[in-house]
Design a protein around this nucleic acid. Structure first.
Lengths: 198, 198
DNA sequence: ACCTGAACACCGTTCAAGT
DNA sequence: ACCTGAACACCGTTCAAGT
C-alpha cells in the first residue's frame, strides 16, 4: 500500500496540461468567490469534465493545497528577508504580518486551514503546511523570548491562532483597516514583555 | 413599503403552531450540524413544506435571528448579574466570556454575525442585535477605562471582535481548552492597563 | 492510463394550485 | 390568509463507456 502508479517516469503531456489548467482556473475562482467556489465551474473553465478534476485532486483540500503551494514558497522567501533583520522583536512582528497575509489569500481560507489542524488527519493535505507554519512561528517566538521581548507564557501556536483570527476577521469584510490595526496592536501588547524597550 | 398584513389582531392557531415547530426544529438542527443546516430538513422535521418555512422566515438569517432571541434574553439576564459585581475590571472580563459563549451557541455562528455588521444592511435581522452587543461592550470598556483598568486606546468593538474570534476558533474545533485559555489571557493582557493592581 | 459526459442525490428557492 | 407539493436550478460526486 504505497504510491498508486504514477511512479512511471514521465507524465503524459495532456495530463500536465490539464493539471496546469485546473490550477489556474481554481486560483481564479478562489480569488473571485473564495475557497467555496464551485468545482464544477472550475472544471468547466479548465476545459475538462468534473471527473478529471476529481482524478487530479480527490478532495477540495487537495486542490486548495496545490494552489497554495506558490504562496507558501513566497512565504519562505519572505522568511529569509526577515531573518536579515537581526531584531527578534521586529522579526516576530513581521512574520505575524506575513502569516496574516498568507491566510488572507482567498476569502474563506482560514476555515479549512483550522479544520486541517483539528485532529491529526494525515489524509488532509493542508495539515502538513499548517504544522510547518506553526513550527516556524514557534521559532520566532522563542527567539523573541530569549531576547526578552515576549512573555515566557506565550506559545507559537497562540500567535498562529491570533494571526488566523485577524485574517478571518479581515476576510469577513466587516471591518475597516483602523479596527484591524487596533486589533493587531492589542495582540501585540498582549504578547510583548512589558519592560521591553520601545 | 410598510407592514404587510399581520396587523390583524390574532394570528391563526396553525400559524403559531407552525412557527413554534419551525423554531424548535431549527434549533435542534443548528445545534447538531451548525448554522448551515439544510432548511429543507428543518421544514420536514417541523412537519411543513419548504414554502411555509420561507413564508415565516424569508431568509436563513431571519430564522437564525428568531432562534437566537432566547439566547439574547439570557445574555441580558446575565448582564444584570454582572452589574452587581461593582468591579469594572472583573465585569468586563465576565462580559467578554458571556459574549464568547453566546457566539458559540451554534457551530458556524460567527460567520453570519460578522456578515451582519458588514455594511449597514438594514434588511439583515442580525444587524440590530449585533449592534446592541457592540454598544454594551463599549459601555463595559468605558467603565473599566474610567477605573483605570483598561488602556484608553481600546474600543469596545475591538474586544467584541476578539470575543468573536475566540468563539470562531473554539467552534472550528482545532483547539484544546488550554490553548483557548492562553489566547484569552493574551487578549486580556492586551487591553489591560499595565499599572493596574492585580 | 486517462478522459468524457451522463447520472444520481441533495438542497435552496419559487410558483401554481389548493383550503 | 395560509399551506402544500411539485418544479426548476445548481452543485458535489461517481460510474460506465470511450480512446
Amino acid at each position: 500500500m504505497g504510491a498508486k502508479g504514477q511512479q512511471g517516469r514521465k507524465p503524459r503531456a495532456d495530463v500536465q496540461r490539464n493539471r496546469a489548467a485546473l490550477l489556474e482556473a481554481a486560483q481564479r475562482h478562489f480569488l473571485r468567490v473564495g475557497v467555496g467556489a464551485s468545482l464544477e465551474a472550475v472544471a468547466k473553465e479548465a476545459g475538462v469534465g468534473p471527473a478529471t478534476l476529481y482524478r487530479h485532486f480527490p478532495t477540495r483540500e487537495a486542490l486548495l493545497a496545490a494552489v497554495l503551494q506558490t504562496r507558501s514558497e513566497e512565504l519562505v522567501a519572505r522568511q529569509e528577508d526577515i531573518a536579515l533583520l537581526g531584531d527578534a522583536s521586529e522579526a516576530l512582528r513581521q512574520w505575524l504580518r506575513a502569516l496574516e497575509e498568507y491566510f488572507s489569500a482567498f476569502s474563506g481560507l482560514p476555515e479549512p486551514l483550522m479544520a486541517a489542524v483539528r485532529e491529526r488527519e494525515p489524509d488532509n493535505p493542508l495539515t502538513l503546511p499548517c504544522d510547518e507554519l506553526i513550527a516556524t512561528t514557534d521559532e520566532y517566538v522563542r527567539a523573541a523570548q530569549l531576547a526578552g521581548h515576549a512573555r515566557p507564557s506565550v506559545k507559537g501556536y497562540d500567535l498562529y491562532l491570533a494571526a488566523v483570527s485577524v485574517a478571518w476577521i479581515k476576510g469577513s469584510g466587516a471591518t475597516d483597516e483602523e479596527s484591524l490595526d487596533r486589533l493587531r496592536a492589542l495582540i501585540e501588547s498582549g504578547y510583548r514583555e512589558q519592560d521591553g524597550e520601545e
